[in-house]
Nucleic acid binder design. Structure first.
Lengths: 343, 343
DNA sequence: CTGAAAGCGCTTACAG
DNA sequence: CTGAAAGCGCTTACAG
């Protein structure tokens, strides 16, 4: 691999000049510039970003911390962030924690992944909300150039892209109510997750305002997975409650519910209606297409990336991009999985 | 951020010694080693990987070149490769091309993404088979430390992780035959893609061996997407052929087929059977679960990562890992989407 | 076992 | 407009 020096020699100029024709071409005379350009082409030179990063003390990369790549949640976030970053000449690099570990090991793995990002000199870190808020807050405190996406952590030295899960829950309830449902059941996400409790709270509150109490036997604990949704739906069927509608706190579980209905010969939405949450890829692909709450992950991750860029620009005394929207409001996407049973 | 120098000063040793206690602790005296360790802990030092890369001329990272993150194909590959690499202290970094471009722009975008990887000094590049073989071959020639996954390109200065799509096609046909199907239809992937033509050829050949000719009107051109599958199935229905079975060349399209059947009131598998290809996440989550051909992407990407590691180890005169399996054979995963109509 | 020194490939004031 | 020089934060022969 040829270096700047090689090119300089070939063009008969100093390496400083070559560097300038790369970074500030307007500073170099037209004639020498074209000599240099020719030499670059001839030698097949490409810049060594590592050396550049070291010299400029800026890596132009932002880290993304996640727990897994195989997820409907992660993909649009990575897509949105990396494309936006790319538009500004920045890179995204991602670190994932290991899986299926004990709690202690898992914390360890998270810290290792996080540290690997810092070691690689990322200029900021976008953290997905896969761990407990307290842990997120802890990491964000250690590394103030953190952005958390999907949940809010109360500490102000970092920034959050938030989504109103509570309102989302209310919207789901409202839609069911509007369609005449009273005998309703809910499948939650992991109970220790903020977003899940908020979705649940919004749902419960809205129902209560219409004098419908969601009892303990109408709430089933899930885990945001397809299998979790299936298991919960099986229990629901076995319970003999025959709800007219089920609210699954995410689309993966909603698909599980639909699958279990299929097995049990329950028609959706005729026999039981389903509303999901997230508006993931899955929701358009199901039969029938799923009525769900939209969480605009792609937009949210673009916003996070914009925040990240502004952190970098601030450090470099460049003018920041416009401030992005930082709080997102859900909307309900009506498709075909809930029936109007109003008579 | 404290540097090696800072730690050295704090511990009263040279920076070389600090570096050694990081990289070759056995070379430094126990007493000074503990002084250094204390200083590291006290200062909160973490190594600057950028500087290290420059000094050692090794980035310990391998690049992955893809076209998109939102794909059932990409996720398991990224997952497999990055986890394996992580086990050996290496990093994966991914570059994606932009989308929805004209041909010329798209080639341009591919080259930019690829170059960005090289600029970042990756030690090898794992390329997914999202572009034409000829283009892949071209890039692999420019950068011999390339590994292509999912297809084979004939040039020997690089390495391929291949999968026998042809046999996969045969397997699909065999299974349909075994279950008594004769009136069969096939939906292909993009016709310019190697894997698609191989899958198709295997399918056609096997059928022919049993005296079943797949006519031109029994082959529908798809594009490996859900919508493509739907559209094709609609055409199939409109054609009035009433096939007893359809072979979709990937699972996304198979899901589209199932969806269209649902809309048309066609029962799967009672009225029409479906076999897919890839054994992606989708296949277990469909109703009914999809009979499909397994392409073990996670294993394949782990193999690719192993090859990548061996390239790096070779360069550093380290002893290579064991040679991984480099050619993968499909198996059919029988689930519930094909009916036995043998009488 | 440890340190001084050179070097990795760039960038960027500073002079001219 | 251009170049010599110092420096970014490490590593690694080379001496001792």
């Amino acid at each position: 691999m040829p270096t700047l020096q090689d090119v300089a020699k070939l063009a008969g100029v100093s390496s400083a000049t070559v560097s300038r024709t790369f970074n500030n071409p307007e500073l170099v005379d037209f004639a020498t510039r074209s000599k240099v350009t020719a030499a670059i082409r001839k030698s097949g030179y490409t810049r060594n970003e590592t050396a550049r990063s070291l010299a400029t003390r800026s890596s132009r990369t932002v880290g993304i911390l996640t727990d897994t790549f195989v997820s409907n949640y992660f993909a649009p976030i990575l897509e949105g962030a990396s494309k936006l970053l790319g538009q500004y000449g920045y890179y995204a690099t991602v670190a994932a924690t290991e899986h299926n570990l004990s709690d202690a090991e898992s914390t360890d793995s998270q810290i290792r992944a996080w540290r690997s990002l810092i070691d690689r000199q990322v200029e900021s870190i976008i953290m997905l909300a896969f761990m407990e808020s307290a842990d997120l807050a802890h990491l964000a405190k250690e590394f103030p150039k953190s952005i958390v996406i999907g949940t809010s952590i109360d500490a102000d030295q970092h920034q959050c892209i938030t989504f109103d899960h509570y309102i989302g829950g209310r919207l789901a309830a409202e839609h069911l109510l509007k369609n005449g449902h009273h005998n309703i059941v809910m499948i939650t996400g992991p109970t220790h997750k903020q977003d899940s409790v908020q979705r649940g709270q919004g749902f419960i509150d809205k129902l209560k305002e219409h004098d419908i109490q969601l009892g303990i036997n109408q709430i089933f604990i899930g885990d945001y997975t397809f299998q979790g949704g299936r298991n919960a739906m099986r229990k629901i069927i076995e319970s003999g409650q025959n709800p007219t509608a089920v609210f699954a706190q995410n689309d993966d579980m909603a698909l599980g519910v639909a699958s279990e209905c299929y097995n049990a010969g329950i028609a959706v939405p005729k026999d039981t209606s389903i509303v999901g949450f997230d508006n993931s890829n899955l929701s358009t692909v199901m039969s029938p297409p799923l009525t769900t709450i939209d969480q605009p992950l792609m937009l949210m991750s673009r916003a996070a990336a914009t925040l990240a860029l502004n952190i970098s620009y601030g450090r470099a005394h460049q003018t920041p991009l416009e401030n992005p929207q930082t709080h997102f409001i859900p909307t309900l996407i009506e498709r075909d999985s809930v029936a109007n049973i109003r008579t």
